[in-house]
Amino acid sequence: MIEIIGREKQKIQLEKSEKLHDIYRIININEEGFVAILNGTPATSDAVVNPGDNLVFLEIFSGG
């Protein structure tokens, strides 16, 4: 399950194993605007995500 948390919330089911950088492209979100948490651990863009994995994208906010 892929969950996107930020201004908009989404949940997406992954059909097959994909590299994280491909998932950013597939779901059309900016890699620099989100932190990826794969199975509870921060993940780099070359990590492989499997259909049974838990992937959460946390949107990065800034303010002042």
Rank of each mutant, 00 (worst) to 15 (best):
M1I: 10
I2S: 04
I2M: 06
E3N: 06
E3S: 11
I4G: 06
G6C: 03
R7W: 05
R7C: 04
R7I: 06
E8D: 12
K9E: 08
Q10C: 07
Q10P: 05
Q10A: 13
K11A: 10
I12S: 08
Q13C: 09
Q13S: 15
Q13W: 06
E15H: 08
K16I: 05
K16Q: 10
K16A: 09
K16N: 10
S17G: 12
S17I: 04
S17L: 00
E18L: 13
E18Q: 15
L20H: 07
H21N: 15
D22A: 13
Y24E: 07
Y24K: 11
R25H: 10
I26V: 14
I26A: 13
N28F: 03
N28Q: 14
I29V: 13
G33W: 06
A36H: 06
I37M: 15
I37K: 14
I37F: 13
L38N: 08
L38C: 07
N39R: 07
G40K: 03
G40T: 02
T41H: 13
T41C: 10
A43V: 01
T44F: 05
T44I: 05
S45R: 11
S45Q: 08
A47F: 05
A47P: 10
V49K: 00
P51E: 00
G52N: 09
D53C: 01
D53E: 01
N54C: 01
N54D: 08
L55F: 03
V56W: 01
V56L: 04
V56M: 00
L58I: 04
L58S: 01
L58A: 06
E59Y: 00
I60N: 01
I60W: 05
I60E: 04
F61Q: 11
S62P: 03
G63A: 01
G63K: 05
